[in-house]
C-alpha cells in the first residue's frame, strides 16, 4: 500500500464498519462515524460517559480524511506514520487477532468432514547487536500434530467464512491449542538457536566489550558512582545482550477439508 492507495483502504475500512460515506472523491473521504468507531477513534471518553450516564443516544462525529494534495476541500491529512492511520491499523490488528474459520466447500450434497488446524502467526523478535523481527506462520493439524510452516502464504488466496457450510461437520480436536503451542515453541526455539549462533556470538562479544569499557571507566568509590555503574550496566544489557522473544500476532482454529489438509501436509 502506498500513499495513493490510502484512500481506497480508508473507504473499505469505514464501509465495512457501517459508517456512512458523506463525500467520496479521490483523496478525500468524508464519513459519519458509528458510535463504536467514534469511541475507538475520536478520543472523547468523557462525552460518551456522560451520554451513557444520561441514558441518551449520543451523536457520533463526522470526519474528513485527506490523502492527496489539491482536493476540493481540506481534511485531516492521513499518511504513513500518521497517528490516525496507526490507530486504524491497530483496530484491524485487534479485530483480526483471533479467529475461527471454515473452508468454503463446492460440495453441497454429501456430508463432508472438516479437519481442525491450529494456526498461529508469531513475531520472532531479535534484540542484540542488531534489531530484527521475523514473522513466522505455522499451522498444526490438531488430529495428529503434523506441523506446517508458511501456513498463511499457502492459504492467502483461499476463501474462509465464519459459518460452517451446510452439510459439513467438524472432526473433534485431539490435541489442545495449548499443547499445540508448546510443540510450536519447542520446534521454533530449536530452529532459532541453530540459525542464530552468529547473532549470539557477536552480541555477546559486543556486550562484553562495553561492559569491560564501563568497568575501566568507572571508579567505584562511592554510592553515587555505584548507582551510575549499575544503571549503565543495565542499559548495556538491555541494548546488547542477545535476546529473542516470541510474540503473538494472530491465530485461531481453521477447519479445512480433507483435500486441503492432505495438500498442506504432503509438502
Amino acid at each position: 500500500m502506498n500513499q495513493a492507495e490510502i484512500h481506497g483502504f480508508l473507504y473499505d475500512f469505514f464501509t465495512k464498519r457501517q459508517a456512512d460515506i458523506l463525500h467520496n472523491e479521490d483523496g478525500l473521504l468524508k464519513v459519519k462515524l458509528t458510535k463504536e468507531l467514534d469511541q475507538k477513534l475520536m478520543n472523547r471518553p468523557f462525552y460518551w460517559q456522560y451520554i451513557q450516564a444520561m441514558g441518551k443516544e449520543g451523536e457520533p462525529l463526522s470526519v474528513t480524511f485527506q490523502s492527496k494534495e489539491n482536493t476540493s476541500e481540506e481534511g485531516e491529512w492521513v499518511h504513513f506514520g500518521s497517528p490516525r492511520l496507526q490507530q486504524i491499523f491497530d483496530i484491524i490488528k485487534e479485530e483480526g487477532k483471533y479467529t475461527t474459520l471454515y473452508e468454503q466447500l463446492e460440495e453441497k450434497t454429501n456430508r463432508t468432514p472438516l479437519y481442525p488446524w491450529f494456526v498461529c502467526n508469531l513475531q520472532v523478535k531479535y534484540r542484540g547487536w542488531y534489531v530484527h523481527d521475523e514473522l513466522v506462520s505455522l499451522g498444526i493439524l490438531l488430529t495428529n500434530g503434523t506441523m506446517r510452516f508458511n501456513w498463511m502464504e499457502e492459504n492467502m488466496h483461499e476463501e474462509y467464512s465464519e459459518t460452517i457450510p451446510d452439510y459439513a461437520y467438524t472432526i473433534p480436536l485431539i490435541i489442545s491449542p495449548q499443547r499445540a503451542m508448546e510443540q510450536i515453541t519447542y520446534e521454533l526455539s530449536k530452529r532459532i538457536k541453530e540459525d542464530s549462533q552468529n547473532f549470539y556470538d557477536q552480541s555477546v562479544a559486543l556486550y562484553e566489550k562495553e561492559i569491560q569499557m564501563l568497568d575501566d571507566l568507572t571508579d567505584l568509590n562511592d554510592e553515587e558512582s555505584q548507582n551510575f555503574y549499575e544503571q549503565n550496566k543495565e542499559q548495556i544489557y538491555e541494548r546488547l545482550y542477545p535476546k529473542v522473544e516470541l510474540n503473538w500476532v494472530n491465530g485461531g482454529i481453521f477447519y479445512l477439508s480433507k483435500d486441503k489438509t492432505n495438500q498442506l501436509t504432503s509438502i
Binding site: 483480526g96 487477532k97 479467529t99 474459520l101 502467526n121 506462520s137 467464512s161 465464519e162 494472530n250
Partner: peptide, 13 residues
Amino acid sequence: SPSGDWDTFKKAY
C-alpha cells in the same frame, strides 16, 4: 476472544 473474519485476519497479518 471475539473472532475476526478472514479478510480482517489477513489484513491484520
